[in-house]
Simulated scan of single mutants.
Amino acid sequence: MSTSEGANRAPSPTGPVPGKRRRLRDSPLRPGMWLPTVVAVALVAAGWTYIAETQPYVLPRLPDVGATLADDPLAFLGNAWSTLSIALMGVAWGAGLAFGLSLLMSEIPVLRRAIMPLAVVLNVTPVIAVAPALVVAFGFGLAPKVIVTAIITFFPVLINVTTGLRSVPVPVMHVFSTLHASRMEILFRLRVPSSLPYAMAALRVVLPLSIVGAVVAEFVAAGSSQGLGTMIRNSAAMGQLSYVYAAVICLAAMGVLMLAFTTLLERRLLFWHESQR
């Protein structure tokens, strides 16, 4: 082989290429990804076990909680579905109304100055104080629980989406103005896409929060016979701590799954955004 051929040949890499290094760094099989979680869970379980053995009236034993879940899983699944239905309907109404109002307020500044103070008052009003009145107004069915959940999830979406709609870079706005874009084109081709990262951040908050809203609604709404909130209330009244914490574990699992779904949806919708790079 001639000297020129050896000089022109690119040196072979001695290590993984950058893309492969990134995949190895982000791989869930790498100990640095799963080991801290395992250690934290083990420490919590050890502390739980110590408190349960020394003070059984504070926490039940973890095997007792597991046995409670295994004895009647259909009851927990049925009550979990009831709570999840309330949470999802509350998010649909609360987030949908907040998104629609945000679109209107971005185009009509007078409407923003009129609605925002009322939204703040609604946000700071204790929803537990309003729930009994909602039961009187709408009966003992699903409606008051959905309204309570919608109230809890309404304000974060309103604030985040309104901020996102108003966060369009000025140079980009000038480009659209130079192209003589209409207000609707600016709204749906510029403002709405710019607000998506803010909207997804709000959903990451309100979707797990909707579980809290549904449980609060089941706590305070009279006549409730289903749902994990009702199960917790009834079990606590009878001193059945294993049922209480089994229902709490179900609620935590639902919240984690909803957060994971939101994260996956965010990666799919915002693949173009710098936050996903």
Rank of each mutant, 00 (worst) to 15 (best):
F138L: 10
V110I: 13
A92T: 15
A131I: 12
A95N: 03
I128D: 06
G139Q: 05
L59G: 08
L84H: 05
G90H: 12
F138S: 02
I86W: 02
A75W: 05
V121K: 05
L62H: 06
P117G: 10
F99E: 01
A137R: 14
A137D: 00
T83E: 10
F99G: 08
G96L: 01
E53H: 12
S82I: 00
L97G: 04
I128V: 15
L59H: 05
V91N: 07
A67M: 06
N79L: 07
V127K: 15
M116W: 04
R112L: 01
I128L: 15
V130T: 03
A133Y: 15
R113Y: 12
D71E: 14
G47S: 12
M105T: 14
F76E: 09
L77D: 03
A119M: 05
V65K: 10
Y50V: 14
L59W: 09
D71G: 02
M105D: 10
T49H: 09
T68Q: 15
P63H: 07
L88S: 00
V65R: 05
F138R: 11
S82P: 03
P60G: 06
G47P: 02
G96Q: 08
V121Y: 07
A46Y: 11
L97A: 13
A137H: 01
Q55Y: 13
F138G: 02
T68F: 03
F76R: 05
D64A: 15
P56A: 08
N79Y: 04
A75M: 11
V135E: 11
P56W: 06
D71S: 13
G100L: 14
L134D: 03
L103F: 03
V124P: 06
P73R: 08
M105I: 04
P56I: 00
L97P: 00
M89K: 12
V127E: 10
I108M: 10
P73M: 10
P109R: 14
G96T: 07
I51N: 02
V130Q: 07
F99R: 04
I128E: 12
P132S: 03
T125F: 10
A92I: 11
S106F: 03
F76V: 01
L77A: 12
A67W: 06
P117Q: 11
L77C: 05
P73Y: 10
T125A: 13
W81E: 09
V91S: 01
L74R: 11
V135M: 14
V130S: 07
N79I: 00
A75R: 13
A137N: 04
L103T: 08
L69C: 06
A70P: 01
I128T: 14
M89F: 08
G78M: 05
L84K: 03
T49L: 07
T125G: 03
W81Y: 12
W81F: 14
W81A: 13
R61E: 11
G96Y: 06
V58T: 12
D64P: 03
A137E: 04
P63Y: 01
R61Q: 14
L59P: 06
A98N: 04
I128N: 11
V127S: 07
S82M: 02
L97F: 05
D64R: 14
L118T: 10
F76G: 01
Q55I: 00
N79E: 01
A70E: 04
L97D: 00
V124M: 06
A95K: 03
V124R: 01
I128S: 15
V127L: 15
F76N: 06
G90M: 12
G66W: 14
L59E: 09
T83A: 09
A133F: 15
I51V: 15
P63E: 02
F99K: 03
